[in-house]
């Protein structure tokens, strides 16, 4: 039983990261119906920018303190948001009125471009975050070991998700985003500047991915230029699992995917872990064709 709960916490920690990245997919999808395959690479860029900032400021040790971490996070948010904004302007806006699949191919091209740009700038080697920024304290609750930094990570992911949910549901801008998601034409007629809303979404989504990148860097230490591909695919799976376009869905999907992976490796097979996760996804979609929390979309006739 102890092992079960240990695996559950392992899964939740991984799932929290998936969820955070999945939010970016889901938001962009919500307004543009576009699968932004470059999203995983924005996550990588966030991780690398965090690395550059931490080492540039010579931040190390607990002297740096939580304030410095927050400062770096804010700067990464700003920079990745800017890249996201530019990405939409350059690679997606010209394709907005064409077939959705054209934009998908453009996204794949952007993904290859970013991945290789990171490799050329930082080199193909792994980069390693300064090791002593994060607290190394490990909590022991009833025989289950949970590093403090894990709890902080899950808490931070949850806080960001709740903030985002509040933002989209309770603010005027959030309402504009939702209106754009439902019907761009109608939103335009209501006086919403659709282009600005889309730009905003393309800043928020990637920024969340960037934050996830810094968190992965801080916690796991190691960043490399291909990491976005692995995490991106997982996060996309999570977003679909929860019902793409749906913010609580991304949270549920991410956490669930993490838990399925952990329990799958624990009780079935590690080598088959990803296959198990995809199998569960397929089964869920067969039963609920639009994901766990996705709404059944009526056919346009």
């Amino acid at each position: 039983m102890e092992e079960f709960f240990q695996q559950l916490t392992n899964g939740l920690a991984v799932g929290g990261i998936y969820a955070l990245i999945a939010l970016g997919y889901t938001m962009v999808y919500g307004v543009l119906k576009l699968i932004n395959f470059a999203h995983g690479d924005l996550f990588t860029i966030g991780a690398y920018l965090g690395f550059t900032l931490f080492t540039a400021f010579g931040l190390s040790g607990m002297v740096a303190g939580p304030g410095a971490v927050v400062l770096v996070l804010l700067m990464v948010v700003g920079l990745v948001a800017l890249i996201g904004f530019l990405l939409e302007r350059v690679a997606y806006r010209p394709l907005r009125s064409s077939s959705r699949l054209s934009a998908v191919v453009s996204a794949l091209g952007a993904s290859i471009f970013f991945q290789n740009a990171v490799m050329l700038i930082y080199g193909a080697k792994f980069q390693v975050y300064p090791n002593d920024i994060r607290p190394s304290y490990v909590l022991s609750i009833m025989g289950i070991d949970v590093p403090l930094v894990r709890i902080m990570m899950i808490a931070a992911s949850l806080a960001l998700m709740l903030a985002l949910y509040w933002f989209t549901q309770r603010t005027r801008i959030g309402a504009a985003i939702r209106a754009t998601a439902i019907d761009q034409g109608a939103a335009k007629l209501m006086g919403i500047d659709v282009n600005r809303v889309i730009s905003l979404v393309f800043m928020i989504g990637p920024a969340l991915g960037g934050v996830a990148g810094v968190m992965v860097g801080l916690y796991y230490g190691q960043v490399d230029f291909t990491m976005g591909w692995v995490y991106g695919l997982k996060a996309f799976t999570a977003a679909i699992l929860g019902g793409i376009g749906n913010i609580p869905g991304a949270m549920v999907g991410g956490l669930l995917l993490g838990v399925i992976e952990a329990l799958g490796s624990a009780y079935i097979s590690i080598a088959w872990k990803d296959a198990i996760a995809f199998l569960v996804l397929i089964l869920i979609l067969i039963i609920r064709p639009t994901g766990l929390l996705g709404e059944r979309v009526a056919d346009k006739i």
Partner: peptide, 13 residues
């Protein structure tokens, strides 16, 4: 699975 970051599930097992 190579390329991942989190191997705690494997270590627990």
């Amino acid at each position: 699975t190579p390329g991942e970051r989190d191997y705690t599930a494997i270590l627990t097992k």
